[in-house]
Simulated assay, not measured.
Amino acid sequence: MSVQHVVFGFGAHSGIDDGPELLRMVQQADRDGLDHFSLSDHPYIGGRLDAYASIGFILGRTRHISGFANVTNLPTRPAPMLARAVTSLSALSGGRIVLGMGAGGLWDRIADMGVPRLSPADAVDAFEEAITLVKKLSGGGPPVTYQGRHYQVNQIEPAPVPAPAVWTGSVGRKSLAATGRVADGWIPGHAADWLSERYRTSRPIIDEAAAAIGRDPHEIRTVFNFPGRITDRPLPATRDHDGRWIGGSTDQWAEELTGAVLEHGASGFTLFSPDGGTQDDVSLGRWAKEIAPAVREAIAKKGADAEGDGA
Rank of each mutant, 00 (worst) to 15 (best):
K301M: 09
T222N: 00
G268D: 06
Q252G: 10
D50C: 01
G265W: 01
S88P: 04
P116I: 09
V26F: 05
P143G: 12
D108T: 13
H241A: 15
F37K: 02
D112T: 15
A130D: 11
A304P: 02
E129Q: 09
I65Y: 11
D35T: 00
G172I: 12
F226D: 00
L74Y: 08
Q4P: 05
A209G: 07
L59D: 05
M25F: 05
E297M: 00
A178Q: 13
G310A: 05
L262V: 05
T145V: 07
G180K: 08
I246Q: 14
L271R: 08
L137T: 13
L34T: 02
G228R: 05
G100I: 03
G259K: 11
V86M: 00
V144K: 07
G276Q: 04
L92R: 04
H36Q: 07
T145D: 04
L262P: 05
T132V: 15
I55D: 00
M25Y: 04
A300G: 04
I65P: 11
L262W: 05
D207N: 05
G141L: 14
V295R: 03
G114C: 09
P20V: 00
T250H: 05
G268Y: 12
D32L: 07
T168E: 07
V115P: 08
R239E: 07
P217W: 01
A111W: 02
H190M: 12
E263H: 04
I131C: 14
I131A: 15
D50F: 03
T278F: 03
I58W: 02
S170E: 03
H218A: 13
A111L: 02
R198H: 15
A183V: 01
D232P: 06
G67S: 10
L235Q: 12
D112Y: 14
G47E: 09
R84F: 02
S40A: 14
Q152G: 04
V7D: 02
A212C: 10
G169I: 06
E297T: 06
L74M: 13
M1N: 01
S267C: 00
A163F: 07
T250V: 15
I58L: 07
G243R: 01
I213H: 09
E263M: 00
A123W: 08
G102Q: 12
W253R: 03
Y151A: 06
R296C: 00
A254K: 12
D207P: 03
F224A: 01
G268H: 11
D125R: 15
T72G: 08
S273Q: 08
T87P: 02
A91Y: 10
S54W: 06
E255L: 04
L99P: 02
D112V: 11
G169Y: 10
R31G: 11
H190W: 13
R286Q: 11
G60K: 03
S202K: 00
F269E: 01
S40F: 14
H150F: 15
L39H: 10
S14P: 05
R149I: 00
L271Q: 03
I45F: 11
P43Q: 12
D32S: 08
